[in-house]
Design a protein around this nucleic acid. Structure first.
Lengths: 365, 365
DNA sequence: CTGTTAGCGCATTCAT
DNA sequence: ATGAATGCGCTAACAG
């Protein structure tokens, strides 16, 4: 049997022609009215029974619940939101769905949201501020109760969309251009500083910091790596260590190592330590450095940890933080705010850490 | 400034106390009524202007559009769905948000959905059939127009939830217990067969197939690896190669290699080739095999590709398919069906491939 | 304790 | 070409 046939059979589409003249009868879903009729009560009673709200005689309630079961009734959350102005949904936005760290983020958001009965709308900006605004607009149209910002690229203008529509969001809007979230930034800066000091200690004199190049249409989630870069620049400046920014035009093509990395590694005075600003860059960096011994020839550091970084030989040194935990905490905070619950006074606790593994060693002389 | 304070300031919650006496005025969103008042027309005219539907005088239309702009009006998709029985949303369900392959899947779903103006609700089952049903129930409550099944664990009973509510879904429901999707399975079986033949050819006499152990509360997305295992068992049976199933109780703890793998590798007659049934298992497998030379001592094969598998030294041989492309195609198919568009007669084209890299070599004698 | 009613935001029909 | 009125499914106010 062909695929398409089986598909058709399994999923008859509702309201088949796109333009029936009368409002379609809710696409064949069981409604509260059906339940009311079946149980021989009014819809108000059904509503009360569902929500355990107001007075309902015990036997009546039992009858209603039985009818619900039998008919397979699921109250429409959409209809509910019409009245309550709560949609029980939140949005999560990330720049691109390619970085395993984003998956950690989504996992955190989803788990915290689900625990509180919320669903998560996932949208991405694909690195484009324009696309980002479009995606946020979609979340507005869906009237999500709040938005968790993973990575975002549009800066203040994007946030204004949410502010304009009075949609709660985390992290809170600070001066985005400086640092999205100062607590996060502080933790990250401290760990970055620690990492930098270690490289200095090991005698590295030239360090490469690998980032994605920004283009007009495609921006990197800016506040992260720029601030880190500043930390390193300052530290290295004082210690007499050169810091090269290596810009990748994009994700290298399949099988071909990144040209920019290969070039930099072949230069007259090549870096003896390489830092990938981004977890997704790390494997590409490693691929680009193929042939060089780690850490005999070059040391390697990544941002963001994963089982792969740990399983790599040698295991890769990273600066990382528990994205899952932080996303969970951030989401809980958002939901607390939405529901008027008291917020934890300390906010989300960010803990970046420098995890030294054997990919880092003394600079080659 | 403390986190919580900044947060509160940035996201004033709407309808602060949980029980205002009158229906809340839509949480402060601009409505079609506001636009109508501002433009000095009726709401019907605004509606027509937005949707380019029916007759609207050109100048009136311009005025309405200007008012929309000025007021920052975004039509509520939720209110729209009330009438149209189309929510312009679809659900995507995966077992767990940990496997990078799932991220590829979500990326495919999201991109295809967005192109058609749909938003994606992401839910997970966390490997539990019960949780899966709950999550699907949430999607039903949200009245999604369709669901893309990534991995799922609840079998027929889960699908029945969708069928009961007449919600379109892909892949189509076949006899789940045998194979969710025969086209997919065929492609996967062919590539698996090729991989197995190669191992035989290289003289391997004992092969380990590493999977996650199922427990009552936690099931592996079954149809994948069982079917593959069968392919290998048959092939190896004929060739006189032993096939060991190595069950991992769960994800190994941080830093500690999986006990089950270490044990099997140390046995009297250890496997000379190892196959990870799952991309997320691969790094754990590599970690567990640490100390053994690849491919001198043991050969390694993974299911599902990623840049990490490629960047690993040696690069890891995999059986993989383009999850992103397939998820996109699957989603497009779902949307075509929902919108009554003709379906591509051939359905989704699945292409599994055996990608041999240097992690596979002759069996050690 | 229960039923009737109004209205959430929007698209649509029917009058004008 | 436009406006008034209706109803999608549901909850909450009010009247029995």
């Amino acid at each position: 049997m062909r695929e398409a046939e089986r598909f058709n059979g399994s999923a008859p589409k509702r309201g088949s022609d796109g333009r029936s003249l009368t409002p379609r009868k809710t696409g064949g879903f069981v409604t509260i009215k059906d339940v009311a009729a079946h149980a021989g009560v009014s819809i108000a009673t059904v509503s009360r029974a569902i929500n355990d709200n107001g007075y309902v005689a015990t036997d009546v309630k039992a009858r209603v619940l039985a009818s619900m079961q039998e008919l397979g009734f699921r109250p429409s959350q959409r209809a509910r939101s019409m009245r309550s102005s709560r949609t029980m949904s939140i949005g999560a936005i990330v720049s691109e769905l390619v970085n395993p760290v984003h998956l950690e983020f989504l996992r955190g958001v989803e788990s915290a949201a689900n625990e509180s009965g919320y669903v998560v709308l996932v949208v991405s900006s694909q690195g484009s501020p324009e696309k980002e605004r479009e995606s946020l607009g979609r979340l507005v149209a869906e009237r999500v109760d709040g938005v968790v910002l993973g990575t975002f690229v549009g800066g203040r203008r994007s946030l204004d969309i949410l502010a304009e529509h009075n949609i709660a969001h985390v992290p809170p809007a600070g001066p985005v251009s400086e640092a999205l979230n100062s607590a996060w930034m502080r933790a990250e800066a401290a760990a970055t500083h620690e990492m930098g000091r270690r490289l200095v200690e090991l005698g590295h004199k030239r360090v490469a910091y690998v980032v994605f190049q920004e283009t007009p249409g495609r921006r990197a989630p800016g506040y992260h790596h720029k601030a880190r870069y500043e930390v390193l620049r300052e530290l290295f400046g004082a210690a007499g260590v050169a810091l090269d920014m290596v810009n990748l035009a994009g994700l290298p093509a399949e099988g071909a190592p990144a040209e920019e990395i290969v070039q930099a590694a072949r230069s007259v005075d090549p870096p003896t330590a390489w830092v990938a600003c981004n977890h997704i860059l790390l494997p590409y960096l490693l691929d680009g450095l193929a042939g060089l011994g780690i850490p005999e020839d070059v040391s390697v550091v990544g941002y963001g940890d994963s089982i792969w970084a740990e399983a790599y030989r040698p295991p890769i040194t990273v600066v990382s933080h528990d994205t899952y935990r932080e996303a969970r905490a951030l989401t809980s905070m958002l939901l607390d705010s939405i529901n008027g619950r008291p917020l934890a006074p300390e906010g989300v606790e960010y803990r970046s850490q420098f995890i030294e593994r054997s990919s880092v060693g003394p600079a080659r002389r």
